[in-house]
Amino acid sequence: MNLFRILGDLSHLVSIFILLQKMRSTRSCAGISLRTQILYLMVYCTRYLDIFWTFNASLYNSSMKLVFILSTAYTIYLMRTVYKTALDPQIDTFATYYLVGGAGLLAVLFPYKYTVYEVLWSFSIWLESVAILPQLFMLQRTGEAETITTHYLFALGAYRALYIPNWLYRWFLEGHFDPIATVAGIIQTLLYSDFFYIYYTKVLKGKKFELP
């Protein structure tokens, strides 16, 4: 465990709290992509299958895994019940089928081992790398976002971005290298680069998030 990884995980945790806080404070899920949330739930359910047999790994990992699965399920529940009036299927239209299909194909082509767990793990890593696309696509269609929503997206993107120095650290200092996670993590961070740029040049300077 190193600092980058802890900061990454904390950033991930913070992003979830910001999202729940956004819905509570605005009493609405406007601007949030239900499709992206459903993809994340698929990511966590397929990657964290091992909570049922790796209790010994660490209490930290197991509890974080449970928190990610439960909080995302809870978010989807809220979006589909309490806040469903703000859902706009006309805007949230990204073809998620291709993302799931592409991740499935990569998982079958490049798992570390041909076991159900390893293929699902690889699937979750590839799917996570593109799960934000419906959300970013929605942002592009509306052209603007509430500030709290941009904080959520920043924290979520920072999580994988912070894992990159963690992987470098582990590669040099521990001889640990995980090519699938690293390549997918870099792709994931690149997908955020436009968003990060606008967040930095506008939101952090007190302006509203608006696309040029």
């Binding site: 974080m64 990610f68 090519p179």
Partner: peptide, 10 residues
């Protein structure tokens, strides 16, 4: 050979 000692990351 790549080294993956289990998936210990989140």
């Amino acid at each position: 050979e790549h080294v993956v000692r289990g998936h210990d990351e989140l």
